[in-house]
Design a protein around this nucleic acid. Sequence first.
DNA 1: TAAAATTATCTCGAAACTGAAATAATTTGG
DNA 2: CCAAATTATTTCAGTTTCGAGATAATTTTA
Lengths: 145, 145
Amino acid sequence: MNRTKEAFKAFVGVKRTNEYLESNVKKDVSRYGLNITEFAVLELLYNKGDQPIQHIKNRILIASSSTTYVVDKLVDKGYVDRRPDTNDRRISYAFLTEKGRELMVEIFPPHAELIKELFEELTDEELAAFRKTLKKISVKRAQTN
Amino acid sequence: MNRTKEAFKAFVGVKRTNEYLESNVKKDVSRYGLNITEFAVLELLYNKGDQPIQHIKNRILIASSSTTYVVDKLVDKGYVDRRPDTNDRRISYAFLTEKGRELMVEIFPPHAELIKELFEELTDEELAAFRKTLKKISVKRAQTN
DNA sequence: TAAAATTATCTCGAAACTGAAATAATTTGG
DNA sequence: CCAAATTATTTCAGTTTCGAGATAATTTTA
């Protein structure tokens, strides 16, 4: 088969795999009244600490206006709050409230377990090679907004 | 590193790679006033012939209500039309109009070329292994709606 | 050091997508 | 053979996401 067709199939494959993974994660997090984007933000704050809004946008790959929207949602739900940066007044940090932290302590471990299971068909070598290839494709990342 | 963390990174990697690929495709098709979903439908009809709405939904992985929405959009733009099935009156086929076909004749080849370039960092072997791994992950596919 | 450029966040209106339920047609099985 | 179940599509209201532009703060540069 020629290279163009192979590439096309790989493109579709990535889309399908992403869809497959996300539909599983979605099912998981919806039990807590969260959607994938909301969970991604909570997960980032939980594992990497307080983050400027800008940083959240870059990490979870959504438009800046969407970032404002998701953080607002999480603030409404009482899981997140905002705190202005003391040096640079343009910057606003998002951080987990006590309620948000308690939620993540409860739901993150089984979530990580689920993700592990989604990849269980792969050998260690396969998983490592897969990650390497993914990186190779998307190194010089595109920037949105 | 432990398996759970590896899996988690692979999960994020798939998401990023998908985002990277889609942002490139988006840039390409937006020049013709199309979004990715619309293009995916046109591409399906162009390469696989007329399709029942149901089939479109399964192929491009969106909710049935979204399928109606996208096809409506393409009908409005004059690229697609609907035709009822003569045997089973529940079924409606979507097909390319002459205008739609002309558009695809023009834009599909450079589009395929773009996709090929997005994977050009990979050797033939790497690309083949990558496709195999993608399939392995998402074999028993989840069904939406 | 003041004007210009850049950076961070938010507002707003519109587009895209979804789930639940409605409608209509077909198939199944008791 | 008909009631119940299934299948295909659409409608509708609501949610999520976006792009363009506004606002405000900081940095650059001439």
